[in-house]
Write a protein that binds this DNA or RNA. Structure first.
Lengths: 186, 186
DNA sequence: TCATAAAATGACACTCTGTGCCATAATCTG
DNA sequence: CAGATTATGGCACAGAGTGTCATTTTATGA
C-alpha cells in the first residue's frame, strides 16, 4: 500500500508538479481514501523525506559494516557510493525527483532537513573509529561536510547531466578532501 | 509594519511554539488583518527564511568589500563573524529563534534551504578571487562547506550554550580547514 | 468452518493555511 | 481639494492535516 501511494504520488509530481498535485488525487490514483493517505504519510512533503531518510540509514549501516582497516572517510565514501548505486537501480525517475527537490523551495528544505538528520547517525559511526574517538563535535562536523558534498554532487549532476552521479560524488568528495590543499589554503 | 508583524510573531513563537501560533493571532497582535499578514509574508514559515536570507546577503556584501590582499577564506570568515556580531545585537531572542529552527523540522528545512541559497552568492564572490578563478563548481562547494560549518557552529552554540557564538563559529571554521589534517587524513 | 478480537480503512466534520476578488480606506500628486 | 494610486480589510474558497466514529478487512483460536 505504502509503495502504491508513493508510486502514484511520484507519477503525479513528475506529470504536473508538486503543488498542483492534491492529496485527493494521489489517494484516488493509489486506490485509497484521503484519510488513509495521511495514515501512511504525515504530510504530502513526507513523501520526500521518507526516501531520503531511508537512504541515510542504509548508508550508516553500510558504513558500520565496513572493514576496520579501511580509513574512515574512505569507508564513508564507499558506503555512500554503494547505496547511491543501489538507489539508482530502484528509483523510477531519479532525476525528476531530484529536480523537484532542487526547484521547489519547500521540498528543498525537506530534503536538506532529512539530509541533516544523517549527521548525528554518521557522526556516531565516525566516532567509533579510532582516529576520531573522543571528539563528537568534530565527527558531526565531518559528517555534515560529507553530506554537503553529497548534496553539491547531486546539484551538479542535476544541472550538468552529462556526467554520471557516482562520478560527481567522487569528484565532490575529492574536492572536499582537497579543501585544505594548495589552492585554497589561507 | 513588517517589523511589527515579525515582532508579534516571534513573541508568540517563543511563548507557545510555532505550530500552536496561528496567523490569526499574529495578525491580531500586530494590529493588522490576516489578509494583510499574507501580503507581507507568503507564509508563516517565510518569517524565518526572511531573516536568514537577509543575513546571507549582508555576508556576501561584506565579503565583497574585503581588502584584496586578504586570503579568500579568511575574508569569508571575517564577513560571517562580523555580520553575526551585528545580528546578535539586533535580535531580541536569538537563542529562542535558533531553537525553533533546530527543533521544528519544517523550520529546520526552511533554515537550511535559506542557508543553501547563500551558496551561489558566496560562491560567485569566491570565484572573483584570483586563487579560485575558473572553477565555479569548486567555489560553490567551498561556499557550501562554510555554510555547513556555520550551521554546525550554531547547533553547538544552541546545544552547549556556555561558549559564545563567534567562538563556536571560529572553532568550526578551524576544524573545517583542518579536515584534511593529520587526524582525519585518509 | 466459524466466531471473535484486532487492525485497517473510510466517512465526516472541523481548524488552519494560503489565495483570489472586490470594496473601502489611506496616501500621494498635481 | 480632486483624482489617482496604493494599502488594507472582508469574504469566500480550495487544500492540508486531524480527531472521531462507523465499517470493513484480516488475523486468531476453538
Amino acid at each position: 500500500m505504502l509503495r502504491e501511494i508513493e508510486r502514484a504520488a511520484w507519477d503525479l509530481f513528475a506529470a504536473v508538479g508538486f503543488d498542483r498535485t492534491t492529496v485527493e488525487e494521489i489517494s484516488r490514483n493509489a486506490g485509497v481514501s484521503r484519510r488513509t493517505f495521511f495514515r501512511y504519510f504525515r504530510s504530502k512533503e513526507e513523501l520526500l523525506s521518507f526516501s531520503v531518510e531511508h537512504f541515510g540509514q542504509r548508508v550508516a549501516q553500510r558504513f558500520a559494516e565496513a572493514p576496520k582497516n579501511r580509513k574512515p572517510l574512505a569507508a564513508l565514501e564507499d558506503a555512500i557510493l554503494f547505496v547511491t548505486q543501489e538507489e539508482m537501480h530502484d528509483t523510477r525517475q531519479p532525476k525528476e525527483m531530484l529536480g523537484l527537490m532542487f526547484e521547489e523551495p519547500t521540498l528543498r528544505g525537506r530534503f536538506l532537513c532529512a539530509l541533516s538528520r544523517w549527521v548525528p547517525v554518521l557522526g556516531k559511526e565516525l566516532a567509533k573509529r579510532k582516529a576520531y574517538r573522543g571528539d563528537a563535535a568534530r565527527c558531526d562536523l565531518v559528517a555534515a561536510l560529507y553530506c554537503t558534498a553529497f548534496d553539491q554532487a547531486h546539484l551538479r549532476w542535476y544541472r550538468e547531466g552529462n556526467v554520471d552521479l557516482p562520478t560527481q560524488i567522487r569528484r565532490a568528495f575529492r574536492q572536499l578532501r582537497d579543501t585544505n590543499g594548495p589552492v585554497s589554503s589561507r
